[in-house]
Amino acid sequence: MRAFRYHRPADVADAVALLGAEPQAAYLGGGTNLVDLMKLGVQRPDVLVDLTRLPLDTVEELPDGGLRIGATVRNSDLAAHPAVRRDYPVLARALLAAASGQLRNMATTGGNLLQRTRCVYFQDTGKACNKREPGSGCAARHGQNRDLAVLDWSEQCVATHPSDLAVALTALDAVVQVHETDGPRDIPITALYRSPGTHPERETTMARGTLITAVRLPPLPAARRSTYLKVRDRASFAFAAGSVAAVLDLDGDLVRDVRLAYGAVAHRPWRAYRAEQELRGHPFSPALAARAADAELAEARPLRHNGFKLPLTRAITVRALTELAAS
């Protein structure tokens, strides 16, 4: 492990300034992903800027009915927050479906959004990975790719984003509040992540050094009827083989509004706009939900080992929406 310096910034502006002054610096949240990657030599920062003492650790109920979640709020605290449980059950369920109790106690909201792919080739410096080392190639494209993308991948990268939280936030149209050198800015989470394209090393639309300070959830009364379904290869403590975040608003049996996002299918949390469009304004039925999922997945290009993700994602779309419709 490379020797590194450690800084504890006084405030948000200080943190952003430190990153601006140090080209090899990295922000440290709970450390549940970064520290592992440092041990493996995948990330090699020479300065760590520890954010966990900054006053970003509260959940605030907003006058408009929305919620502001500080960037250093721990996953377990967020999952247990009464307003989250009441108004955004999809979010609580996504959090509790992730990792282990110990990890959730450490992991932060901002860090969770910026965690790196669990593609095995990315995590091994002995193997080719354009994301880790641009230009070295993508060993996963024709390698062991069961866990990887079926949508929107490129010849340069077939990685998936591993977060469950980000999938729920994508369905909820969350807004990511960031601080850059010239001040604060809001980024819709649906515009935060990039497709891999020819530069898979660029994962978000944020400039280097940008600090996530909070995540804002707009009011969405329909989200009281929401859920997160995650399927994985064992009962707990595993990344998703497939996941869906769903919000359903029915008027009688007519779909007044619906929000759907998928995990484990792409380089970013996948908002299923096309499926939503198929559903909106029509009487709900499981068959309609299946058609909507098929429409969303029509352009999927499964890799050698992950064709199962298409029927799996369809199945959990139908199940999530059918359960919500019946609730």
Binding site: R118, V120, D124, K127, D147, R234, A235, A238
Partner: peptide, 12 residues
């Protein structure tokens, strides 16, 4: 390639 306990799954 799956040489850790996050990717080589053991029953929990």
């Amino acid at each position: 390639v799956n040489h850790d306990l996050a990717t080589y799954h053991i029953t929990g």
